[in-house]
Nucleic acid binder design. Sequence first.
RNA 1: GGGGGCGUGGUGUAGCCUGGUUUAACACACUGGCCUGUCAAGCCAGAGAUCGCGGGUUCAAAUCCCGUCGCUCCCGCCA
Length: 590
Amino acid sequence: MDKSIRHSRRTHSGGLLNDCNVGEKVTLAGWVNRRRDHGGLIFIDLRDRNGVVQVAADPKNKEAFKIAEKIRDEYVLSVEGEVSLRPEGTENPNLPTGKIEVIASRISVLNVAKTPPFEIVDDLNVDENLRLKYRYLDIRRKPMLDSLKLRHQVVTTVRNFLNDYGFIEVETPFLTKSTPEGARDYLVPSRVHPDHFYALPQSPQLFKQILMVSGIERYYQLARCFRDEDLRADRQPEHTQIDMEMSFVEQDDILSLVEEMMKRVFESLGMNLEIPFERLNYDEAMEKYGSDKPDVRFGMELVDVSKIVINSGFKVFDNVIESGGVVKGINAKGCGKFSRSQIDVLTKFVSVYGAKGLAWIQVTEDGEIKSPISKFFSKETIDSITKTLDANSGDLLLFVADKKEIACESLGQLRLHLAKEMDLIDKTTYKFLWIVDFPMFEYDENEKRHKAHHHPFTSPNEKTISLLDKEPLFVKANAYDLVLNGVEVGGGSIRIHSQDLQRKIFSLLGLSEIDINEKFGFLIEAFQYGAPPHGGIAFGLDRLIMLLAKKDTIRDVMAFPKTQTATCPLTGAPDKVTDKQLRELHIRVK
RNA sequence: GGGGGCGUGGUGUAGCCUGGUUUAACACACUGGCCUGUCAAGCCAGAGAUCGCGGGUUCAAAUCCCGUCGCUCCCGCCA
């Protein structure tokens, strides 16, 4: 007997009963999933965590029947009865418990329930705000329950795996110090220290590195991370990371350990996973897919046609190339019949990503070229373009001419958009991909300074470290992202463990000596006491579960997520507080 | 900060473009009744919305206009 089931009020879980239990007297507890009253016979589908079982109340048992007549959906019941095979012909093959039913000898109502604001059914279509307000009812639904069970399963497997590999789980503070760089912090005012604030951690990054200095060697934590930025379907103000750090390792050690871990996770879910994962360097990913998190479940790769179209006389293309830009294209296979207005929609789509236009060439069914720009090109050029993009009858070639980043990114997004529209993605597969050789820095046009692409604690690649002073944008980082089906599910790096190098990176990021000492002095100081070489990685647990559960948003795999405006419809957070609370915190509002 | 979509009984939608035969319709849920093999039970009857909110146009607004709020998707942002 499952330890999780037996209580004084329950001998069995109704959802787990089957024909092996026939003849047993059982006591069940659960919620009324549905009641079907036949006048002379009442069926109650009793639901618990494991599923639903049919309880039959017969008028022969007057007392139980009388109670069954008054029962409503979502009442909480205790039911005693005997497990019986259903009469022949009345089995329900759609239900795991469909061969049997429980003939009620006693029914008692443990609690009544109001009619819920929405039905407790698997296939629910209601406003998400309502679901969040009544999340406790939403979670009674099987898909939600399944998501939470899946999440638990994955977390358990990960913990077991890391424990097996000698990792120690260490908790790090929620109330910590606000540091520059990175996302906006959630701040917590200090009562004891007027004008001083804690910040909730964006990640345990600094603590886990310090734990390496402490000699923990292998650390992990299922860490809650807080970021006060705008929300998306895959971004919440608080999310959970599987956070790891190891001493005396190199990039390959971490990548292969992670591959083993993912393999184990997939195995625990009954799936096989091929390892090692494919690796792609950042430049190549941008070049071919226009993304640092490409979905490689389908092709439609980006092709650079700058060399073909250069000096062909088409001003728009020539000007872009002359000023250092590129012309890139994709082949939307089978979209050759797209109407002008359909293409207009695509043009609008790429404009969101900064593309100023979308050039196109249609290859019609009879192999004719249809295009507003073909008149600028010689037949040879057209042939060369179609050949390079592997264009056949019925294809649509789409081009963006712009700065390299814009051309790549907008076409990369278009590639994804078209793949979804044309249903090119095999949703049954999981394709992991490592992105490696990230740039160390990127230039922030607004702030007119370099920013760390990954984070300021990432070490530069030895081969490019000599460029730090002269050409920082060409320096590669020892950083790596794990991408699954086009979603960034993890990222990490080999860290800096030398105080001198760390100071240098900070100063390249525009931090003054004073800033460095004030904001990161404790880290630099720690590095002076024998910091081991170390590196690590962190996974977005919510995103990983989202993909495994085949959901479109991480909200569906979190018990109590926030709305897009970072509110909680269930509790009403955030909320005003009393003047007294504010006074104690030395805060004046407005 | 910006752009798109949505907002009509408890829930999901229709109606809106083209204002008036609409007493705001339909399905599910709900309430009562009938019914002993249903499992999306069935049948009969019933209750329930002044159309997110505010303002405007008009003889007349769910419908048109302006503003606003909420939800959502995206851009920016998210080392």
